[in-house]
Write a protein that binds this DNA or RNA. Structure first.
Length: 418
RNA sequence: CGGGGUGUAGCGCAGCUUGGUAGCGCGGCUGGUUUGGGACCAGUAGGUCGUAGGUUCGAAUCCUAUCACCCCGACCA
């Protein structure tokens, strides 16, 4: 990509409403713009980060045999009445009626739709297990949206669902998802922890949350020295205390703030009973399917990753989710033919090496370009001016540290992929 | 929904107390000098002061209503 074809919407100032670092940096770096409370448009740089995260999730889920599907965001009320969540879910369910006065909602989660989908096609244990996921926009009419995309009313979530003939088969799948999630968060280079959780109004009997540890997190976690533990709701019940301080006093556990980026549930037969999703077993009995569901907040991960990886100059992307692996900054390229052709050469070289790169060919000063790309957080910076053009070299700088190194072109690829 | 706060140019703000017809910084545009860490000079565009109504000779300023947005709380992935 060249900046002349890839709009960069960085800005110096940030609206006063942005409080936390990730929200401020996402606006300054031109990743998002607000449409209204809790609703954000994603600009090119932001969308590239989302796509990187989605790629990792897709790969890891495919690895455990989970196939991708896509379901409609608009869901008929009938399904929600069948599961009895039309009343139970509360005002967070964004509802509306169509021209025929028929009731609908915008999906915050998809247990009803997928159960309906599966029960129409699956009738035998021989067809199970089935594992499906989708990555799509979800809607929750939040009381108070907050911190940019951290708590939004419209957000992108990956939701997966599994269907089984027995509890033991569900238990196995649950562990598979748990390990896939570990791989995902490891590849995203997030500092995270897994805690025991309450299954809330999703339902079921076992549940774990995946939290990115961050000061700006909204959830309270109680952790032991190995960072294992539980969320506050579970701790209250387990230790029969009703506030954080007394639990800490009683147990000696450490309190940390977490951003919930993933949540997995063993749903059991809750939905299959209510919605009559039955199969015939090997011994010809008719039973309700066992289900699990598994969510990851894709857009929330973007904010969480920034909370964990930034400095006073801006974002510092983990390699796996950076919008680009390397940025080429040319100095005076519009005036100096040698600089321009040398930069283009490097640009092509990186293309051939399958390294994602952006080439800043704007007529802007060196300092301006550096500030922009340090703000955006691309991990590798290649500087090309008249000296590099003459010497047939490049100057390399990492987003971390201030050292600039003039190196041979051949050494560039090693530097980046290291 | 309860409490608090804010709406004035793309962004950050001043002006409001004490009514007299809107200003600053950043950003934008034009021209020139610049470009190795957010340059400088000169010029220029851009606002029915959130919206509606009222008081007044006259309203950004006072009054009423309303909408939007933010913060704290309850709720929630």
């Amino acid at each position: 990509m060249k900046v002349s074809n890839f709009p960069v919407f960085t800005q110096k100032d940030v609206p006063s409403e942005a409080e936390v670092a990730s929200h401020q940096l996402m606006i300054k770096s031109g990743m998002i713009r607000k449409l209204s409370s809790g609703q954000y448009s994603w600009l090119p740089i932001g969308l590239r980060v989302i796509q990187k995260i989605q790629d990792v999730i897709r790969e890891e889920l495919n690895n455990i045999g989970c196939s991708e599907i896509l379901m409609p965001s608009v869901q008929p009320a009938e399904l929600w009445k069948e599961s009895e969540r039309w009343d139970d879910y509360g005002p967070e369910l964004l509802r509306f009626t169509d021209r025929h006065n028929r009731e609908f909602c915008l999906g915050p989660t998809f247990e009803e739709v997928i159960t309906d989908l599966i029960k129409k096609d699956v009738s035998s244990y021989k067809q199970l297990p089935i594992n499906l996921f989708q990555i799509s926009s979800k809607f929750r009419d939040e009381i108070r949206p907050r911190f940019g995309v951290m708590r939004a009313r419209e957000f992108i979530m990956k939701d997966a669902y599994s269907f089984h003939e027995s509890q033991s088969c569900l238990d196995m799948a649950y562990e598979n998802y748990k390990s896939a999630y570990k791989n995902i968060f490891k590849r995203l280079m997030l500092d995270y922890t897994i805690v025991d959780a309450d299954s809330g109004n999703i339902g079921g009997n076992e549940s774990n949350e995946f939290h990115v540890i961050a000061e700006t997190g909204e959830d309270d976690l109680l952790l032991d020295d190995e960072l294992n533990g539980m969320n506050l709701e579970i701790a209250k019940v387990k230790y029969s205390e009703d506030n954080l301080e007394s639990i800490i006093k009683k147990t000696g556990l450490t309190h940390k703030k977490g951003i919930e980026v993933g949540h997995i549930f063993k749903l059991g037969q809750k939905y299959s009973e209510k919605m009559k999703a039955k199969i015939t077993t090997k011994d010809s009995k008719s039973i309700n399917m066992f289900m699990g569901c598994y969510g990851i907040g894709v857009t929330r991960i973007v904010a969480a990753a920034i909370e964990q990886n930034h400095d006073s100059n801006g974002i510092i992307w983990p390699k796996s989710i950076s919008p680009f692996e390397v940025v080429i900054i040319e100095i005076d390229g519009h005036k100096n033919k040698e600089v321009r052709s040398h930069s283009s050469e490097i640009y092509d070289l990186l293309q051939n090496s399958k390294i994602s790169r952006i080439y800043d060919d704007r007529d802007a000063s060196f300092g301006n370009k550096m500030k922009d790309w340090e703000l955006i957080g691309v991990p590798n910076i290649v500087i090309i001016g008249k000296n590099e053009a003459k010497n047939k070299t490049i100057t390399y700088k990492s987003r971390l540290g201030n050292e600039k190194l003039e190196i041979k072109i051949e050494d560039l690829i090693n530097k980046i992929t290291l």
